[in-house]
Design a protein around this nucleic acid. Sequence first.
DNA 1: CATGCCTCCTCACGCGGCGTGAGGTTCAAG
DNA 2: CTTGAACCTCACGCCGCGTGAGGAGGCATG
Lengths: 256, 256
Amino acid sequence: MNDSGTWKVGALAEACGLTVRTLHHWDTIGLLSPSRRTPGGHREYTEDDLVRLYQVLALRSLGLGLETIATCLDGGVDPRRLVRDHLAGVEAALASLTSLRERLRRLDAELAAGRSPATTDLLDALRATGATAPDRAQALRDRLGADQLRLLQDQAAAVGPAAHYLLEVEWPELYRRAERLRTTGVPPADPRVRRLVARMDELGERFSGGDTATSAAVRGAWRDAPHAMSGETPAATEGWGDLADYLDRAREGAPE
Amino acid sequence: MNDSGTWKVGALAEACGLTVRTLHHWDTIGLLSPSRRTPGGHREYTEDDLVRLYQVLALRSLGLGLETIATCLDGGVDPRRLVRDHLAGVEAALASLTSLRERLRRLDAELAAGRSPATTDLLDALRATGATAPDRAQALRDRLGADQLRLLQDQAAAVGPAAHYLLEVEWPELYRRAERLRTTGVPPADPRVRRLVARMDELGERFSGGDTATSAAVRGAWRDAPHAMSGETPAATEGWGDLADYLDRAREGAPE
DNA sequence: CATGCCTCCTCACGCGGCGTGAGGTTCAAG
DNA sequence: CTTGAACCTCACGCCGCGTGAGGAGGCATG
């Protein structure tokens, strides 16, 4: 501290483990400005500023954003709502991070089982650890004949390397999109829904080679076991049985 | 899809739930560039590009950075190290988020107990929920006489509103800094250590009003119960007993 | 009073992963 | 040939600072 009971930036920064640049930044955004300056322009933080600094540090330790802290300290914020909202955000982040950790752990185990250090292994392991592929294979085996299954696999091979993309990315995405339309009350006759259905049928035809029995069986698998087919969480596929009906109505409406 | 078996940005973006801007961005940074363009300059993604897109999506779902994904797909990365390092980062983030959640929950409970919606309450609650203050109060009660305790409180009042700052922010920071110097092998006679000790003693004198018995007792509290005094985790204050000796040696070396 | 050295000042760019326009061109359908 | 949707390329903004660059204030010494 100074003789006059004030602190300069460097001293203050060192004292509380911040950098000078940080205090400059907080000054420019108006979060914490020193009450005084020397004639030469040097910042002088008074004891009142220290109090504010202490409050800023306290709120920052909660992970709040700087602007939130500023409006909070300048009054006009209900702290209970603030804390509750922030807590909700933190819990959401925790949930997604937790499931990510699980995925990474299984992936690590898969990689430890295999040996060679190539990136393609990483991608293979990713496919293997996702519950998606095996579950879907099982769901399909349950309701397709051996001939139909072989047909599907042959077609996937014929479609080529994009097959994985079509099956694992675009197809589930089409379903998610359709479900969003359905739950927001869009009628099945809406052109957006029809476009989705048309694309689904196009993909279905491509993988069944035009065999209507096979594509009907695949549609049945999506209707009865949407969780296994889409790779979504069971909760997220709630009501996807209804979704199948919804899509059927869209097909009837526009046979073209 | 197009007649020629290619996709345009808009179609591709919609198909896999990305935005056009995202695909543009991935193109400019070289993560995913379409193999072809129309004469007019429109992007045309081929099936090979779809394969790469699928791989990018897979790795991105692990939370990897775009540059990491690029170098990973372009070869030359050991996936096991990659996954393990990333997992470590995720676990660290989880740990800090978990402890933050605990703090927020206690804070929420404190706020629910009190009533009025003012920001000062939030700060009061923050002080209350931190284990810091009560634990330190107990540690001090254990080794100070009633007179000394009253003296300390009077001095804190006299120091004014900056007292909280000095006690809760600067003082612990001084200890953390000293501990870092000690563990990195800096000798007690080093000027940096002496400066720290001088500042500590200055603060101590300020709060004890010059009463040497009281300041000695406070130092004793820090020596014997560093966890309670600093508010750090017990693990972080491992060896702070030795730290007190270290500081004493710095004092002896430079009585000035 | 000059010298030297440390701390301070104000710009201003950089990061990651895009969002969000602005202003102009190309494509497919009528 | 015209329309309108979809496409193109800049280029700035976000958050919380880190990291210089280039210059002025402030204090101890010669």
